[in-house]
Design a protein around this nucleic acid. Structure first.
Lengths: 183, 183
DNA sequence: CATGCGTTTCAGAAATTTCTGAAATGGCCG
DNA sequence: CGGCCATTTCAGAAATTTCTGAAACGCATG
């Protein structure tokens, strides 16, 4: 398994960025490798390509799977597992956003609700601030739920609309788009 | 400086979440403390409230400032600095998103462009994949630019619209909202 | 039910990040 | 200038995360 310069650079970059993205270097590299590879790869190939230990590959793949970022294929007459990333980049983005939400937002939302359940305890400012934060997060997660339901094509539309968004909102009320939203 | 139970819990939670958010525990705690505090606090108060070292506080505050997440006030006749978080939660969200983009997305976009500049090198699949990824990221950052330009009120509108988003897009074309977007 | 092949687990080593105390810095005031 | 107060810097200590090699596991096959 030899990598082209292009692959090398891309993979190293993703390794470094891994840190900032809350995954570790190896996981980032494995992902990058799979992303650029037309053919699915097995663990041995990944190990060789990245010069890491076999066990590290195993852990990395496990991590990626827990993020739902890889697909697993098996080949007839070969009992090794082969891994790829989804072809549709939007699917990847959706997965990423969903997982980050699950890890970074949802636990906080739960915690905030829990804190609110305790009822008034004298610290009115803090209590108000917490309630406000909880409401904001709820609003955003609801929005996210909606976005998640949209298909790729729709999302691209929305994105492409770009600077028309503002004026769109102007017209929205006239179009009777304002339904009640559960809060 | 004594913390209520509520504050304690909230602060500890943010400390733990800090990891997942790419900031360290202390920074998360400092932020949480400031967030819940009606009055601005100085470094000494933070140090005491969180039982950490003075220098750790200093580093944490510096980090928060590099994220644009705190405001600094000075008091007449007192040369210590006092810190708060913005009142407007949307401002906080905007800052957070903008900073994360700066740290997590922009460097990758630059790298991808750089890789593309090298021109064809034989690995067509990888090159296509990279181009595709670059386009996707560009589209998303452009969308983000638009969102960033919107005021709080508009954003809340957009969010609140929730499940009407899909049908909104149905009508959009009829409204001649489709301008050219540079790609 | 033993063998072979591939994967996972796990304890400790290595690397990295975070935190601290001590010293350095900066600037205001008498 | 020299003392004072507040903050920052920084080298090393402490804590945490990541990585490895060895052993354990799982399972299809002869």
């Amino acid at each position: 398994m030899t990598l082209t310069d292009l692959q090398q650079d891309f993979i190293l970059h993703f390794g470094e960025m891994g840190n900032r993205w809350g995954i570790n270097r190896t996981v980032g590299q494995i992902y990058a490798l799979l992303f650029l590879s037309e053919e699915p790869l097995n663990a041995e190939q990944i190990t060789a390509a990245l010069s890491i230990s076999r066990s590290n590959t195993s852990m990395g793949l496990k991590e990626l799977q827990s993020w739902n970022l890889t697909r697993q294929k098996s080949r007839p007459g070969d009992r090794r597992d082969y891994f790829t990333t989804p072809d549709d980049l939007w699917e990847i983005v959706r997965t990423l956003v969903a997982e980050r939400r699950k890890r970074e937002i949802d636990p906080t939302l739960t915690k905030l609700r829990e804190l609110e359940m305790r009822g008034p305890g004298g610290d009115e400012y803090a209590e108000a601030r917490i309630a406000e934060l909880r409401e904001l997060i709820e609003m955003m997660t609801q929005f996210h739920d909606e976005m998640e339901r949209m298909e790729t094509e729709r999302l691209v539309q929305l994105m492409t609309m770009g600077r028309k968004l503002g004026s769109l909102l102007d017209k929205a009320p006239k179009m009777k788009l304002w339904g009640k939203t559960t809060t």
